[in-house]
């Protein structure tokens, strides 16, 4: 932080004033455009997922739940591949959260660091970096589901 003992002449602007100046000048995101694009891209990715699910039900003869799982897995494969050929980051640039939140975005968050650190080897490069974002997602997802299970188990005992 600011060293109050600096010899003069320091700027005659306080950090608080400067913070206000910064907020005033720094351009904000184009919120409405971003929200509309997130809706369209997010909706589009989910509809593509729905088409796969319908396909697996009608032509694959899968039950609904299995078809849903298969649809998710298909989108993961697509997201990973689009990241590999270098297209997915362009989709996110346009679609923002609409492309980050679907599982295709999750696949992108796994593949991109692994690709990037490939030169650092198969263990510390690809192996470790595959989980640099997927790791936290799994840690919080799995841990919270175990808590949910525990609470459910305890409530079950009380009944």
């Amino acid at each position: 932080m600011v060293n109050k003992n600096l010899r003069p002449p320091t700027l005659n602007v306080t950090p608080e004033e400067y913070k206000k100046m910064t907020a005033q000048i720094s351009p904000r995101p184009t919120l409405i455009k971003n929200v509309v694009l997130a809706f369209l891209i997010g909706g589009l990715i989910c509809s593509i997922g729905q088409i796969f699910i319908n396909f697996y039900i009608i032509y694959g003869g899968l039950p609904k739940l299995a078809a849903s799982t298969a649809g998710t897995a298909t989108l993961i494969v697509i997201g990973a591949t689009l990241t590999g050929i270098g297209i997915y980051d362009d989709i996110v640039k346009v679609g923002g959260a609409g492309a980050i939140i679907p599982v295709t975005g999750f696949a992108n968050s796994m593949v991109s660091p692994a690709l990037e650190y490939k030169k650092e080897g198969y263990v510390f490069g690809i192996g470790a970096k595959l989980f640099s974002i997927a790791g936290p997602v799994l840690v919080y997802g799995i841990s919270s589901s175990i808590f949910v299970g525990l609470i459910y188990y305890l409530l079950d005992l009380l009944r």
Binding site: N34, F39, G43, C46
Partner: peptide, 18 residues
């Protein structure tokens, strides 16, 4: 699927931008 998926993503966009 389009509408529900789109709206879920919009919440994330608002989180990021706001």
């Amino acid at each position: 699927a389009f509408i529900v998926g789109g709206l879920i993503c919009v919440i994330g966009q608002l989180m990021m931008d706001l």
